[in-house]
Design a protein around this nucleic acid. Structure first.
Length: 600
RNA sequence: GGGGCGGUAGCUCAAUUGGUUAGAGUCCCGGACUGUCGAUCCGGUGGUUGCGGGUUCGAGUCCCGUCCGCCUCGCCA
């Protein structure tokens, strides 16, 4: 075949007069009979027009050109010529290739869809089934390129900062806590199972103990939980760890990374990242990953609510940790119709709220909703919320946990519904000072807010070691040395300074309900490693897929993964998962209890 | 495991209250055409309305079940 001398997308007026060969696919064709045919050829780099014309192109080649159809794969050779009428819509529009010879490398069968017909793109199901056609689209190629750039800049940045890329195993041991594991049966060890890594957490800590000092890995991780629009069972982390560091060093290094990434991939200069404690984030935004691109902040109006006769308020305040909070929605008195507000009422109910009291502030007075209850505190409320004419106000009244969750979620929904999120904004911030533990009254035990290897802050360590496990308030007040990097309300990275003291690690395990025996059974290697001169260390893991989602501006995570899985965990192209041979199961010492056939 | 939305030609969509032979654009096939770039013009192929059951004189439309896709709650240290 004639091999490429240029990419279609790279042709410019500078190539005029040159004889070039293009390899690509037919993006579109315009045949004007046996004497003139235009074919738009597409490759990874872009589109160029190939012209078959009598006088320049041999007749049999014109004939063959007129038979080309969408997505046929061809090689064409010819001379680059300046066009009489340039096409300003494409970058190569000033020139065309006058075809002298052509090879049809591969005719296409009847297409399930036409990749170049952006206005008639099929549903996602069809795109995923024929992913190779979908990926031919320039937009998908652009996303692949961005993803590549992110990986490349990542390796360059961390290489320049002394990090070493080290691979860690995919076949690991299953550990308690955390997400559900994907399991792999062992053939050589009958009855035993590997687990695919949820993250290389322990390996990278061991690498720090092993003197690697600075570690980086771009690595697949697996969590067998239900997907979301930005979550997939199989995903990629940019995983990092540093020894002999404190929180400040890690945060500075990682902030530098994010800035470098945005600069080199998008050409965007990011300002220094603001920092916010977990407490402040929850108080003001009702979530641990606040989207600071817009207002709609939560305001505690408990003191005012106390002065009303409104049962919903007063009974909420009678509860342990009861609060009344409000969100001012500027200028939304008309937009938030009764119907919409009813919908919001239902919306907050799924987070445990009883309903959504609301009121509108029009011409200096409250009207609608719960207006009649607010008379005694009207002045105070206007001042507390900074109300202006035509504002709407929604309230949450319940325990702190319920109000925070309900209003935090509602805040984001209102912002989307009213379309008040500024386009093109990059609001990064750090959230830190997370609690180490949350106590769950139902199971009667503590849970790690981050993971069980997260250290308490240095200042808290002795208080933590001294704390009585039965003293829930004290345990819950212990602050960890963790930090999350937030971008536009999305957690793109999370990490912490790790525990490097055996006594601290043992206490964490015991608070999590692991007996000394269980801890030894599951984590003996870690506890042992910690006893051999473990350096202080800490790190972070970024969600590569989410980073690319933000940078490419896609609606979901599947768009940034070449071969993604659906919400039911299937690969529609290769049809995984699927049945296996009975013989395979036997070798693996596995017998299925499924009602449907487990093998073919 | 729970909730919501969706599934009609290869693709994108339409089809009045349940009522004639389920239509249009596009792709594809055939024909015309020497400057198009969403080419244009003429003709044609193409349907188990996701699947199964039910109600009805009659179901794309209503009901039940099921599968698939998306979103969501739980879950995701």
């Amino acid at each position: 075949m004639a091999t490429r001398t240029h990419y279609c997308g790279s042709l410019t007026a500078a190539n005029v007069g040159e004889t070039v060969t293009l390899n690509g696919w037919v993006n579109a064709y315009r045949a004007h009979g046996q004497a003139l045919v235009f074919v738009d050829l597409r490759d990874r780099a872009g589109i160029a027009q190939a012209t078959f014309e009598q006088g320049s192109t041999p007749d049999p080649i014109i004939e063959a050109g007129s038979k080309l159809r969408n997505e046929d794969c061809v090689a064409v050779t010819g001379t680059v010529r300046k066009r009489e009428k340039p096409n300003p819509k494409i970058p190569t529009g000033e020139v065309e290739l006058v075809v002298q010879s052509m090879t049809v490398l591969s005719k296409t069968a009847r297409l399930p869809f036409v990749p170049s017909d952006e206005s008639n793109l099929p549903d996602e199901e069809t795109r995923l089934k024929f992913r190779y056609l979908d990926l031919r689209r320039p937009r998908m190629q652009e996303i692949l390129r961005i993803r590549h750039r992110v990986a490349k800049v990542t390796r360059d940045y961390f290489d320049a900062n002394g990090f070493l890329e080290v691979e860690t195993p995919m076949l690991c041991r299953s550990t308690p806590e955390g997400a559900r594991d994907f399991l792999v049966p062992s053939r050589l060890q009958e009855g035993m199972w590997y687990a695919l890594p949820q993250s290389p957490q322990l390996f990278k800590q061991i690498l720090m103990i092993a003197g690697t000092d600075r570690y980086l890995q771009i690595v697949k991780c697996f969590r067998d939980e239900d997907p979301r629009f930005d979550r997939q069972a199989e995903f990629t982390q940019i995983d990092l760890e540093m020894a002999f560091v404190d929180r400040e060093i890690v945060m500075q290094t990682m902030e530098g990374f994010a800035k470098t990434l945005w600069k080199q991939v998008l050409g965007v200069d990011l300002a220094d990242f603001p920092r916010m404690t977990y407490r402040e984030a929850m108080d003001r935004y009702g979530i641990d990953r606040p989207d600071t691109r817009y207002g709609l902040e939560l305001v505690d109006v408990s003191e005012l609510a106390k002065q009303t006769e409104f049962g919903v308020f007063t009974s909420a305040l009678d509860k342990r940790r009861g609060v009344v909070k409000a969100i001012r929605v500027p200028g939304a008195a008309e937009k938030l119709t009764r119907k919409i507000l009813d919908g919001y009422g239902t919306f907050v109910q799924q987070f445990g709220a009883g309903g959504l009291p609301f009121v509108k502030y029009v011409n200096g007075a409250f009207e609608g909703g719960v207006a009649k209850f607010l008379a005694p505190i009207a002045e105070g409320l206007v001042a507390a919320l900074g109300l202006e004419n035509d504002d709407a106000v929604v309230f949450g009244a319940d325990t702190y946990a319920v109000v925070t969750k309900a209003l935090g979620e509602l805040r984001q929904k209102i912002a989307k519904d009213l379309d008040i999120i500024p386009k093109g904004a990059w609001n990064f911030l750090w959230v830190y000072d997370f609690p180490m533990f949350e106590y769950d009254a139902e199971t009667g035990r503590y849970y790690s807010l981050h993971h069980p290897f997260t250290a308490p802050t240095q200042a808290e360590t002795e208080r933590f070691l001294a704390a009585d496990p039965a003293d829930v308030d004290t345990i819950e007040s212990i602050v960890s040395d963790g930090y999350d990097m937030i971008c536009n309300g999305s957690e793109i990275g999370g990490g912490s300074i790790r525990i490097h003291r055996q006594d601290v690690q043992k206490k964490v395990f015991s608070l999590l309900g692991l007996t000394e025996e269980q801890a030894k059974l599951k984590f003996s290697f870690l506890l042992e490693a910690l006893s051999f001169g473990a350096p202080p260390h800490g790190g972070i893991a970024f969600g590569l897929d989410r980073l690319v989602m933000h940078m490419a501006g896609t609606e979901n995570i599947r768009e940034v993964i070449a071969f993604p899985k659906t919400m039911t965990g299937q690969d529609l192209m290769c049809e995984a998962p699927n049945l296996v041979d009975e013989e395979q199961l036997k070798e693996l010492h596995v017998k299925s209890t499924a009602r449907l056939p487990a093998s073919v």
